[in-house]
């Protein structure tokens, strides 16, 4: 049984374009949660960078190992060496924050250049970018990263260059699609007819005025990817090494005690990963629904 209810009283004016009408409340919830996560991550990064932590993340307390949350001054409990989990979680953001920014910078800049070449110049540029896209899609990303690690060194910045490059084709395709759409509307021809130089058309009228929402959305989703890769690698032991904390190596370290029933030291960083990746993904998708109106239903 499903219920359909008529609005009592007269039906108000309806405007297709009004954002409020188009926005589903759920999208606002997504974006709200995403922004909250971003704020917490940025604030925690600052705290970690300046060393303003609730506790010394390296101070061991052998008398108080694997403590549950809310025990004597440790709001989130302690790990297997009795170190404060809250402080280590905050410090763990250092492991992916700047590398993640590097990755999304590479994919946004590189993707924009490729996308403009494909969309604006077209022709065989388009073919080459399609080829490049298929080529990068051929490698399981983690395997490609492990190859780079083996050939060079296990450095997170090398890894993030790979993540950035593999993220380029998606953005390139979206921008090329946007340019094709603008062409269809004779937008670009009109801009040229006004006598605007090519770089003004490309940088201002295409990238800034028409693609900024798209780029912000993709950067947000790219951050989620970067966090996923960093935590996976540090779980595998290729990222940040003990005793420096990262969420991945915290899960790994805690896992030894997991099977004894002590899941908190491993679950706390896992939940942090879950909540953060979820936040960036929901922010990206929510913004996409609101700004680009992509929802199909």
């Amino acid at each position: 049984m499903r219920r359909y209810v008529q609005t009592p009283g007269p039906i108000g004016e309806f405007s297709e374009l009004a954002l409020r009408q188009r926005a589903e409340p759920l999208d606002l919830v997504y974006v709200g949660y995403g922004l909250l996560v971003v704020a917490v991550v940025v604030a925690s990064y600052m705290l970690g960078a300046f060393g303003w932590l609730p506790d010394d993340p390296q101070a061991m307390n052998v008398g108080l190992i694997n403590a549950a949350p809310f025990t004597s001054g440790h709001v989130l409990g302690t790990d297997f060496l009795g170190r404060d989990l809250q402080a280590r979680l905050i410090l763990g953001i250092q492991a992916y924050f700047l590398p993640g920014l590097l990755a999304i910078t590479i994919s946004v800049v590189g993707g924009s250049i490729l996308g403009i070449l494909a969309g604006y110049r077209g022709g065989w540029f388009d073919t080459i970018i399609t080829y490049f896209d298929n080529l990068l899609d051929s490698f399981p990303r983690l395997v490609l990263i492990l190859l780079v690690i083996a050939a060079f060194k296990p450095d997170i910045y090398y890894v993030m260059v790979v993540v950035g490059i593999t993220g380029m084709p998606v953005i390139a395709n979206l921008i090329a699609g946007k340019i094709a759409f603008l062409r269809q509307k004779s937008f670009i021809e009109a801009a040229h007819a006004l006598g605007l130089p090519a770089h003004t058309v490309i940088l201002k009228h295409i990238l800034w005025l028409n693609c900024r929402a798209l780029l912000v959305i993709q950067a947000t989703l790219g951050m989620a990817e970067a966090i996923l890769v960093e935590t996976s690698l540090s779980y595998l032991g290729f990222g940040v090494q003990e005793p420096t904390p990262s969420w991945g190596n915290m899960v790994q370290a805690g896992a030894n005690y997991f099977l004894q029933g002590n899941f908190w030291p491993s679950t706390a960083p896992a939940l942090a990963i879950l909540a953060t990746i979820l936040g960036f993904q929901l922010l990206g998708d929510g913004l996409n629904n609101l700004l680009e109106g992509k929802r199909r239903r």
């Binding site: 779980y235 899960v251 896992a255 979820l278």
Partner: peptide
């Protein structure tokens, strides 16, 4: 809506931790 949310959560769960959960459930 519920299904969409579950899908989002599942796609954000770290595989390595999820593996331990399953192992734990199996043992206990």
């Amino acid at each position: 809506t519920a299904a969409t949310l579950v899908a989002y959560v599942l796609s954000a769960v770290p595989v390595f931790w999820f593996g331990y959960i399953v192992v734990y459930v199996f043992i206990h």
